[in-house]
Design a protein around this nucleic acid. Structure first.
Length: 264
DNA sequence: ATGACTTCCGTAGGAAGA
């Protein structure tokens, strides 16, 4: 018998401020599991009721005051959860679980890294690189089939940004970040599901700045959000969609949700 | 463009996003 599993990931930029569009997305797309980043809420104030009402009765949180914060909400049970600190500074940027079918699902929010792409001048940039390096050490030791999703805050390919040339010195697309992400990917032979379904040079963006006068007209997008899978899991991926339409919804996040459907 | 916009916290405006 085939088991279908639809997993979504979305940097929501405040789950409380955007609870209406999260609800709309869950109703329309009906994923089994939604991984959220930038929830921006302490666990005590997480809007449980809205998710429970839509059937997402399993919820695991790793939030903090003001910034960052991740969560997994699900219609299927979530077990053996853990929260890793790849920046070694107590920021809430990861939550992982085991699913009933034995897979691991890891939800991560990689630090943005500040403005200046120089670790000497900008400590946040160094912290971002260290975060990805610690993730790589973790990834090297993985033996369980895993799905790794989230806001990686790095657009690795030339076609992952609106202008490769103009973004070479812009944090998120610098060669040093791209190289760090490539080492992470190689450490487990992670399959980039976005590019599995939309091969280069196909247009595929997940983020558009709030600062553009007309985000759709200028289309200065970047692919900062990703869904990766262990090779033996990626074989079961049957569909993938980036919900660009959500960027035009009322009170949008600057990121849009990604969805992958698996058939086991 | 030391730029534009958005959120949190808290009730002004700084910090952070990327």
């Amino acid at each position: 018998m085939t088991e279908r599993l639809k997993i979504a990931s979305w940097n929501i930029n405040s789950v409380r401020y955007r609870i209406d569009i999260v609800g709309r997305f869950l109703k329309e797309e009906a994923p089994d599991i939604l991984c959220l980043q930038e929830t921006k809420v302490v666990d005590e104030l997480f809007p449980h009721e809205a998710f429970h009402a839509l059937g997402y009765s399993h919820r695991l949180l790793h939030g903090q005051r003001m910034h960052h914060g991740v969560a997994i909400v699900s219609r299927v049970p979530l077990i053996e959860d853990d929260r890793l600190d790849w920046q070694a500074n107590q920021e809430a940027r990861h939550i992982g679980v085991r699913l009933p079918n034995g897979l691991r699902l890891e939800n991560v929010y990689v630090p943005a890294g500040g403005d200046v792409p120089d670790a000497e001048l900008n400590p946040k940039f160094g912290q971002k690189l260290a975060f990805v390096e610690r993730m790589t050490r973790w990834s090297e030791g993985l033996t369980t089939p895993t799905i790794l999703v989230g806001d990686f805050n790095i657009a690795p390919l030339e076609c992952d940004v609106w202008s490769h040339k103009q973004l070479l010195d812009v944090v998120s697309h610098t060669p040093v970040e791209v190289a760090a992400l490539a080492r992470l990917q190689a450490s487990h032979q992670w399959v980039d599901l976005g590019r599995h379904f939309v091969p280069p040079p196909g247009r595929l963006y997940t983020w558009w700045s709030y600062r553009a006068k007309d985000w759709a007209a200028s289309d200065r997008g970047r692919r900062l959000d990703h869904m990766w899978a262990s090779p033996q899991v990626a074989r079961h991926a049957v569909a993938h969609k980036v919900h660009e339409d959500c960027r035009a919804w009322l009170k949008p996040s600057d990121h849009v949700p990604l969805v992958t459907e698996f058939a086991f």
